[in-house]
Design a protein around this nucleic acid. Structure first.
Length: 674
RNA sequence: GGCGGCGUAGCUCAGGUGGCUAGAGCGACGGUCUCAUAAUCCGUAGGUCGUAGGUUCGAGUCCUACCGCCGCCA
């Protein structure tokens, strides 16, 4: 009986369409799941969608539909994307499914029976967007997290005795240092718990879209208690058939985004403790995917969809990039440039080319049969070096993947690719192929066998990350069923001699600059449709995050929403505006626009293009060298086909011309105004 | 405001418990081979390891302050 291995993604909140951030989390889990299967674990991989809550109720209303239909549509989009990406989840849970509702009811009842849920009254401020009660605010105050105005509510609630678990939680973190990873998240959680836990409201009576509290259907169960339970209800907790639950729970890994650490590392274990259910072994939090240094958000209009990359470069390219380029756990930056560069360097020129050259030569010189390596005279030190490198790659890869250090694990595997390329050049098999003497033939056989065997090993190691291409290379090597290959037995020398190669063809065609342009165009088109992309009718203002993994914290809320009732903004609001000193380097008129100038300004750390409607007030040549103030973090915007990355600050006189802000003293470029 | 983290070559990152001339990959530049996806391979480029002090025979690695960025909490 093989060991069970249960892994979960967060369930994604259906208030937003899936994007590359969701894909990132899911890909990481899929990679782990595939690897664990190859290692012989009885792996169970769960993902799904979170569909309840006031936010969904309101979004559906705004879209003129009912919440269930609304959720159906978005959930189907997630499911469709995962199918398209070949995600190997074993189940897909939706919180609106009967099995889930039943399980949640059961969990609620159980915690209540144990005495950890009681009825109380809450009066205070409530943030609809975050679906959270916020302490210490006055009526009309904005939510400290999202900036939207909170609502005053008074309601009778069920409360969970979270306060009773403070010591037990601290003991958990202490006795299982790996419970929360990475360590920086662990520190945050510990300090949060140490600062004292208040009881948690776990029901709502102000809206309907949720699971009714058992025996008191006026209330619905709080979204987080609802959502978190999915990890066990999907296994059959609270149902008649608990086979899977008994087999797979507790989970080995629960992957989350860093924005939902508190819910998974504090509330979730506390709920489980209260119900006397075993705790998951580890909660692993990854960082955020930034787009060229900025958070992806709807308001910035810089959300990238996974589909674009799938269309242009393919599934493996996306998977490889995300896991190789980003240090797992830290925030990482996504850009089309970096994606294509990585793709070409590592996949096309690296693994793809190695497969191509090795297999082509075996075809040419040995009629497509893996040759026998010579045992005696034709052996050289270099051959053994490759074998050693391969063993090293296997070892390091294992250690690093076990710790979810994907980027370093791939780096270790690719070191072997580099070594083999070098080995091939040093041994010049093409020159050996010219000769017919026995010595040369033997040598050629050894060189090509060695190369092919190393290729086989890299292919096996990389399979969990790039399943499609590695399956092809595997088949080209004349092997079959890479997914069934037992990774734990992988070692040098397993390649069957004389095995017949499959048809050899490139697996990673080289990408050119057009690929970048194409992806950008596709995204631009999508974004052009942001306003109308109300497909499932998700109004912009609901784009905030709660139980979703990636939706992240809604920064840069609509200005109108951050202004309190008296028209004043907080210092935090102002701090969102990044005002910087920049120097004009280039200034020219924009064809066909009377007022517009195209400027290139130097911020000291970067140069960027800004379009400014100041042509009537300033001749372009008079601006060159002048220091100006710009809003540096304004979302890019296209005007007259040119992209403007920022805004020049100027006094706007009544009916008159703009006057640029400037300084009397000397100021360095890039200096921030605050 | 409290707590915590980070700041190393153009880019992404390595550099447990201080110790040879600070590393890798990518990119850039020059050269090479020709089996291969104009791929490979070789060489070069030269970073005050955020700043200023301190501890030490010796600090990127420890301490203090400061600057910048970020996270959690209030």
């Amino acid at each position: 009986m093989s060991k069970p291995f249960y892994i979960t993604t967060p369930i994604y909140y259906v208030n937003a369409r899936p994007h590359i951030g969701h894909a990132y989390t899911t890909i990481a889990c899929d990679t782990i799941a595939r690897r664990q299967r190859m290692l012989g674990f009885d792996t169970y991989f769960l993902t799904g969608t979170d569909e309840h809550g006031q936010k969904i109720e309101r979004a559906a209303q705004a879209a003129g539909t009912d919440p269930q239909k609304f959720a159906d549509e978005v959930s189907a989009q997630f499911r469709g994307l995962w199918q398209r990406m070949g995600i190997t989840n074993d189940d897909y849970i939706r919180t609106t499914e009967e099995r889930h509702k039943k399980g949640v009811g059961e969990l609620f009842r159980r915690i209540r029976d144990k005495g950890y849920i009681y009825k109380g009254t809450y009066t205070g401020q409530y943030c609809v967007s975050e679906e959270l009660y916020v302490d210490g605010l006055k009526p009309g105050d904005p939510c400290p997290t999202c900036g939207r105005i909170t609502e005053t509510v008074q309601e009778e609630n069920y409360f969970f005795k979270l306060s009773a678990f403070q010591d037990k939680l601290l003991e958990l973190y202490n006795s299982q240092p790996d419970f929360i990873r990475p360590e920086t998240r662990r520190n945050e959680v510990i300090s949060f718990v140490k600062s004292g836990l208040r009881d948690l409201s776990v029901s709502r009576s102000t809206f309907q879209w949720g699971i009714p509290v058992p025996d008191d259907p006026k209330h619905v169960i709080y979204v987080w208690l609802d959502a978190l339970s999915n990890y066990i209800t999907a296994l059959g907790y609270g149902s008649d058939d608990t086979t899977k639950y008994k087999k797979y729970w507790p989970a080995e890994v629960q992957m989350i985004g860093k924005e939902i650490v508190r819910f998974h590392c504090v509330y979730w274990p506390a709920f489980l403790m209260a119900a006397e259910i075993p705790l998951p072994k580890a909660i692993v939090a990854h960082g955020w995917l930034l787009f060229e240094e900025n958070k992806m958000s709807k308001s910035r209009g810089n959300i990238v969809r996974a589909e674009t990359i799938l269309d242009v470069l393919g599934n493996d390219a996306l998977r490889y990039f995300l896991l190789r380029e980003i240090v797992f756990g830290q925030d990482g930056s996504f850009s089309f440039d970096a994606l294509v560069q990585r793709y070409n360097a590592d996949l096309a020129n690296g693994l793809g080319n190695l497969a191509s050259r090795t297999l082509t030569m075996i075809n040419r010189y040995f009629k497509g049969e893996v040759p026998f390596p010579s045992q005696r005279a034709a052996r050289k030190a270099g051959d053994d070096v490759i074998a050693e490198q391969a063993e090293k790659a296997i070892k390091e890869c294992k250690a690093l993947f076990d710790q979810y250090q994907f980027s370093r694990g791939l780096e270790a595997a690719w070191a072997l690719v580099g070594a083999v390329d070098k080995y091939i050049v040093e041994n010049e098999p093409w020159a050996l192929g010219e000769k017919q003497d026995e010595e040369s033939r033997a040598r050629l056989a050894t060189v090509l066998y060695t190369s092919a065997e190393a290729l086989r090993i890299v292919t096996a190691l990389a399979h969990p990350v790039i399943p499609e291409a590695t399956a092809k290379i595997w088949a080209q090597l004349g092997l079959d069923g890479i997914a069934k290959f037992d990774l734990s037995t992988l070692k040098w020398g397993q390649l069957q001699l004389g095995s017949k190669l499959g048809k050899v063809e490139p697996v990673f065609p080289r990408a050119d600059k057009k690929a970048i342009e194409r992806m950008q165009e596709m995204e631009d088109q999508q974004r052009g449709g942001v306003v109308t992309d109300a497909q499932p009718g998700v109004p912009e203002k609901t784009a905030a995050a709660t139980p979703s993994a990636e939706a992240a914290k809604p920064e840069a809320a609509k200005p109108a929403a951050t202004v309190s009732s008296d028209g004043k903004i907080t210092i935090d609001d102002f701090a969102k505006v990044d005002l910087r000193v920049a120097q004009v380097k280039v200034a020219e008129r924009v064809k066909g626009a009377d007022k517009l100038l195209r400027l290139e300004v130097d911020l000291g750390y970067e140069t960027r293009q800004i379009l400014a409607g100041i042509a009537e007030a300033y001749a372009p040549e008079t601006l060159i060298g002048r220091k100006v103030v710009i809003v540096a973090n304004l979302a890019p915007r296209k005007m007259r086909g040119l992209e403007s990355n920022g805004m020049i600050v100027a006094a706007s006189l009544e009916g008159g011309k703009p006057v640029l802000a400037s300084f009397l003293e000397e100021v360095p470029l890039g200096a921030r105004l605050k």
